[in-house]
Structures are given as structure tokens and as C-alpha cells.
């Protein structure tokens, strides 16, 4: 029977996932853990076939980073990243880390079981895009990829000059992107832009890399 490990720090979500997995009768649960920092430990002490991994977990451990490490050491273990946060970079980061599938918590119970089944069958299941979020006057999918990159640095508290240097663009371009985002969203200044982006979960700055 497929052995499933759940890495999730929110107790309610953890219990629900455990329930869904148990109820399906197709899987065997290994004890769930609260932090992605334990994921490798679990894989080394017991047989794990599939991991349902949250992104933001206890001890500020990032599920995607942990998944990457596990994929390097145990390529046979399938990993599904699960998250309730619509942060726009998660899907791309998960793909880069070699994660098998990706699932948003907002979807129904059946869908996770379905995704688990397909993943175990060797498929890679990703949502087509991040669920669009209301961001000022627009939805988040109306921002360009470059604007999102700049927005991420603004949320991290970088100055325009630092952003320009980090993203290899001119200061004028950075200012242009910020102005364009302000025009689209109707936010009054860059602080409001940063606060709203963080508040609605569009951008989550990794605490460890801050």
C-alpha cells in the first residue's frame, strides 16, 4: 500500500488531509509532521512513497526547498506541494525543484485524492495558473512577469536602486514598472502596493532569505 507523509503545520488542514487520505482506503499514513525541516528525517527513518507538503511550515522551513532536497536524495518519492496561499512564484519554484504535482487547498476533497492517484501513476499535475486575486482595480494575472519580480523586491523592502542592481535593469525601468503597477491598481504609493501585495498573499517573502 502507498505510504503517505503529510507535512502541514495548520492542525485543522492536517487533520482534514489525514481524514481524506485515510477514508479513501487506498493509502497508509505515516505520522504527520509540522515542519518541512523534518521531511528528510522521516524519509530516512521509514518508507515513504508520497509526500503532501505545505509550503510555509513551522520553524520557517520552506516546503519547496525541502522537496528539492528530498528529490535529490530519494528521486523515487513522489511529492505534491499543497498550499492555500496564492503566491505567484510558488508554481514555478515547485517545477524547478522537481516537484511532481501541485494542489491548491481551496479545491475539493475529491480533487486531492484524484491528484494523488494521478501522481502515483507517474503523471505530473499542475494547476494551469495561480488563482487570480483581486489586487486594487485589477486581478493579479494582469501584472506582467517582470512587474511581479519588481513587486517581490518592493515587498522585501528594497530601494529602487537596489532593485535595479539586483534585477539588472535601469533605475528608470524600475520606477517605470512601479508607476505602471500603481496606475493599474490605483494604489497611491509603493508602500500601499507592498502592503496590499503582502496582505492578499500575492507575494510572500521567504523569512529565511530576508
Amino acid at each position: 500500500m502507498t505510504r503517505v507523509l503529510i507535512v502541514e503545520d495548520a492542525p485543522m488542514d492536517r487533520q482534514l488531509l489525514e481524514l481524506y487520505v485515510k477514508q479513501s482506503g487506498q493509502y497508509e499514513l505515516v505520522p504527520s509532521v509540522e515542519s518541512a525541516a523534518f521531511a528528510e528525517f522521516c524519509c530516512r527513518t521509514t518508507r515513504v512513497d508520497l509526500i503532501l507538503m505545505d509550503v510555509c511550515t513551522s520553524l520557517y522551513a520552506n516546503g519547496i526547498d525541502a522537496a528539492e532536497k528530498i528529490k535529490q536524495n530519494f528521486p523515487q518519492i513522489k511529492i505534491i506541494i499543497i498550499t492555500g496561499q496564492p503566491e505567484c512564484s510558488f508554481i514555478e519554484r515547485a517545477r524547478k525543484a522537481g516537484v511532481d504535482s501541485f494542489w491548491y487547498k481551496t479545491e475539493t476533497a475529491e480533487s486531492i485524492l484524484h491528484v494523488m492517484e494521478r501522481t502515483m501513476a507517474g503523471e505530473t499535475v499542475y494547476p494551469e495558473s495561480t488563482p487570480p486575486l483581486q489586487f486594487g482595480y485589477i486581478t493579479s494575472d494582469e501584472l506582467t512577469a517582470r512587474e511581479l519580480e519588481v513587486l517581490r523586491e518592493v515587498v522585501a523592502g528594497e530601494s529602487d536602486a537596489a532593485i535595479a542592481e539586483k534585477l539588472y535593469m535601469s533605475l528608470r525601468t524600475v520606477k517605470g514598472h512601479i508607476q505602471s503597477m500603481r496606475d493599474k491598481t490605483g494604489f497611491r504609493n509603493r508602500t500601499e502596493l507592498a502592503v496590499r501585495a503582502r496582505d492578499c498573499g500575492l507575494i510572500i517573502v521567504d523569512k529565511e532569505t530576508e
Binding site: 495548520a10 488542514d13 492555500g84 496561499q85
Partner: peptide
């Protein structure tokens, strides 16, 4: 997130 889970249930 908790609220959304509750709504889901």
C-alpha cells in the same frame, strides 16, 4: 485559511 477550510467542510 482556517475560515476557508471551514467553509469547505
Amino acid at each position: 485559511e482556517r475560515l476557508e477550510t471551514k467553509i469547505g467542510i
